[in-house]
Amino acid sequence: MASNDSRLRIHKEDDVTYVEFVDRNILDEANIQRIADEITGLIDAEASPKLIISFANVDHLSSAALGALITIHNRTKQKKGQLRLADIDPQIYEVFTITKLNKLFEIHETAEDAVASFA
């Protein structure tokens, strides 16, 4: 599949992989599945993945998107990797609070803070 089909912007710096969403709304089930598959591929490609997912561009997400993030979290944990979420708008952060997923994910204000948190 051509890389320009991706709904993600991905770049790597040292041993850290940065992921950003192209779309402002992470709602569409088919898109969410593609995003989850792509990020899972990034995790599987690393022996000990260090991944930062930035929500800087995101205005809306659904429970299906949260489900994909949980799957990504579980996969990272299986590989003894480290996952950080960053740049989450207060309105979106409230969704994490309501679902108590702020207790499951390690969330940082900025990607810079997230990088500094890696062991």
Binding site: S62, S63, L66, G67, A68, I70, T71, H73, N74, I98, T99, K100, L101, K103, L104
Partner: peptide, 10 residues
């Protein structure tokens, strides 16, 4: 918390 589904109604 680690179960991916079941949050819509909430």
């Amino acid at each position: 918390l680690e179960i991916p589904s079941g949050r819509g109604l909430l």
